[in-house]
Computed example of a mutant assay.
Amino acid sequence: MKLQSRNALRTLLTLLEKRQEKDLQILELLREVTADAQKIIAYAPDRWEVKVDPEILGWNRSDKEIYFPKMMGQKLEFIFPEGWEDGPFGIMEPIGSKILDFHKADLILVPALGYDERGYRLGRGAGFYDRTLYDVNPNKLIGLTYEELFPAMFEKEDHDIRVGCVITEKKIYQIV
Rank of each mutant, 00 (worst) to 15 (best):
R47G: 08
F128N: 02
R61A: 13
C165H: 03
D130E: 08
K140C: 05
R31G: 12
G125C: 07
R19W: 06
T14P: 06
V52D: 00
G119R: 05
A42L: 11
I167V: 07
L15E: 15
V163P: 01
E169Q: 09
T34L: 15
Y129R: 04
L133G: 02
Y67F: 15
E148M: 07
F80A: 08
F78N: 00
N60V: 11
A35K: 15
L16E: 07
I99E: 06
L109D: 01
A8M: 09
Y120G: 01
A126Q: 14
K2T: 08
G58H: 06
V110P: 00
G127L: 04
D130R: 02
A126D: 13
G73Y: 08
E17R: 14
I95H: 05
I142S: 01
D135G: 05
F80T: 03
Y67K: 04
D36R: 12
F128E: 02
I66G: 01
G123D: 03
A42Y: 07
R19M: 04
L57P: 03
F154I: 06
D53K: 10
R6F: 07
F68D: 00
D36A: 10
R118W: 13
V52E: 00
F78L: 06
K18I: 04
S62M: 10
E155Q: 14
L57N: 04
Y115V: 01
R6T: 06
Y129L: 02
D53Y: 09
F68L: 05
F89L: 12
K18G: 10
H103R: 14
A152W: 03
A112G: 13
R162W: 10
Q20S: 15
K39G: 05
W84V: 03
T14V: 11
L107V: 13
Q4F: 13
D63P: 08
M92P: 09
G83C: 07
K104V: 06
E85V: 12
M71H: 10
G58S: 08
D158Q: 14
E169A: 04
D101N: 14
D116L: 06
G114L: 00
M1F: 10
